[in-house]
Nucleic acid binder design. Structure first.
Lengths: 190, 190
DNA sequence: TCCATTTCTTGAAGTACTTCAAGTTTTTTA
DNA sequence: TAAAAAACTTGAAGTACTTCAAGAAATGGA
């Protein structure tokens, strides 16, 4: 427990044993059952969340009452509502375990303190965020340039294992089309 | 020149005069004429770019030969292709001055060195990236939940001054609809 | 100040999706 | 291991856009 986060950090920067200990002392380990919520619409996202095992997603419920998935996260990814974290306004989103999962939570107050006490963490998060944003720029490119069917096939090719792990209706909304349309694409009826 | 970047950094972390000097020695100041390109599809984005004055955009040319704007940047924003920067693969994008602009360029090699020599810069970029990503999460929310007309009105309300500065057809593609549809929305014909 | 270029507008026709409703299959739980 | 819940499928009807083509208006450069 917490091994995977330390490893992930160690791949980008080296923490001393003391720094590791300091970090670990602020981390809350949590098991989430499938479908369990880590964040609900209306509450403030006052933490960073690292996924050790399993799969989580961030979603919202739209005007028509349907869920739309904005992000997925699996092992070694961080998942949170950055806007709510930064402004401390209530979140528009839910964060939910898609599978039984194990996550590490760092409360905002602790994290902000840790970043001051362990400047190497700044480097770690800078690198993580830079990669995350790079991936998001590409995602927007795909959303802008590909048809629904193209997005499905592209995602399927790029992350075949991942596609097995999540229900199709969640993937459909992540790719920004309806679950029914996903069915038709898969059946080759398009 | 370069004052605005130092100020921007100083709002988030304090650099010593020596650190400031070190940073400035690696910065290339560039004036861009309206329409001038800073990055072209096919070349590697091997720099970070800070906008001191003016307005730039990142766009691509799609299958049909149309430009689609993925990002805008104005004073005090960074604009680049993070994926190309990180992988050093050729970019899919163009970065272009929308107005006559003044930008600061930090070449990748220099920046990576600076980040090691001046750890406080890690903090600065971590904060910048965190804000940028927060804004992008909201943008995806808007793209997913709002109609074209709603996106237009929302953007207009949120950034009225900015809307004056860019041609409508660029804004239309940024909001992910056609220039013609933008015209119809504005004319109230929808 | 005039010509060229860029940007914006309009309407008509087409299309890539969505929505709805109902039924089927798969998975989970007791 | 049966019942309940969740996930997937199908077809028909609707709609929010796009595309095309042509012209009008605004802007920029010599």
């Amino acid at each position: 427990m917490s091994e995977s986060l330390l490893k992930h950090i160690q791949r980008k920067t080296e923490l001393t044993p003391l720094e590791q200990e300091k970090l670990l002392s602020k981390i809350e380990y949590r098991k989430l059952k499938k479908k369990e919520l880590l964040l609900e619409e209306g509450s403030v996202c006052d933490f960073f969340c690292f996924i050790e095992k399993g799969c989580c997603r961030m979603y919202l419920i739209n005007d028509k009452g349907n869920e739309q998935t904005l992000q997925f996260g699996i092992e070694d990814w961080w998942i949170m509502d950055y806007m709510s974290y930064s402004t401390e306004n209530p979140s528009d989103f839910y964060i939910q375990a898609v599978e039984n999962s194990e996550v590490l939570i760092i409360p905002k107050n602790d994290l902000e303190q840790l970043l001051i006490e362990i400047p190497k963490l700044e480097r770690y998060f800078r690198i993580v965020l830079q990669k995350t944003f790079a991936a998001t720029q590409m995602r927007i490119k795909f959303l802008f340039t590909m048809s629904a069917e193209e997005r499905y096939h592209h995602f399927n090719n790029a992350f075949p294992v991942f596609v097995q792990r999540v229900p199709q209706y969640m993937l459909a909304s992540y790719l920004d089309f309806s679950a029914e349309f996903m069915s038709k694409i898969r059946a080759g009826k398009i």
